[in-house]
């Protein structure tokens, strides 16, 4: 199994930390992982994206231009990454701020209303965890207990009181993901 994922959105949405938690979850499950962020000027105020790879085998290139899954959290990233999903792959997005919805027919498309849901939960910090939950519903590549272990490892101890909130976000994401288009 090798899963190649791009997570893309605005800086501050928790794109990089979501990728980090996913990568740590992979380690907890004895997988090989890589996490390659965009860095530099584009990180400072613009779009942020990270390529995460989980695999049973040695990971070759940490940098890719086509993906099994794209998790897209703003319009700029939709414009850039919809076309990079492999045929038969997955595009998961939050409709918040999206003006041009994806049009491809050869990929699986899902929506998670994570921004709306995190506002309802009065906890904007759960946003990325709701997205992560939605992804894990579609692609259960790591077990939830390993995700929780991964969160523990990736958060410094002083933030461990936030773990239940993160878990709540993941659980909510598992519930609210919607199917838009599925290919056979």
């Amino acid at each position: 199994m090798t899963e190649e994922i791009i997570i893309a959105g605005f800086g501050g949405q928790g794109v990089l930390s979501m990728g980090k938690m996913l990568a740590y979850s992979g380690i907890m499950q004895e997988q090989e992982v890589s996490w390659m962020p965009s860095y530099g000027p584009e990180m400072r105020g613009g779009t942020a994206n990270v390529t995460v790879i989980l695999s049973d085998q040695r990971i070759n290139s940490p940098i890719l231009n086509s993906f099994d899954t794209a998790i897209i959290l703003n319009q700029q990233s939709m414009d850039k990454f919809e076309k990079t999903v492999k045929p038969g792959g997955i595009l998961l997005y939050d409709t918040n701020g999206i003006t041009k919805h994806p049009t491809r027919k050869d990929i699986n498309i899902y929506v998670v209303e994570a921004a709306k849901e995190s506002a309802l939960m009065k906890s904007s910090k759960t946003f990325n965890m709701i997205v992560l939950g939605a992804y894990l519903k579609i692609r259960p590549i790591v077990e939830i207990e390993n995700v929780i272990k991964g969160i523990k490892k990736s958060l410094p101890e002083r933030h461990h009181h936030l773990i239940p909130m993160n878990v709540e976000g993941i659980n909510r994401g598992l519930e609210i993901v919607q199917i838009i288009n599925e290919v056979a």
């Binding site: 990568a23 380690i27 890589s34 390659m36 962020p37 860095y39 940490p62």
Partner: peptide, 10 residues
């Protein structure tokens, strides 16, 4: 190089 410096792995 910047790739190996900035990327995370196990």
């Amino acid at each position: 190089d910047g790739v190996i410096g900035q990327m995370m792995e196990k």
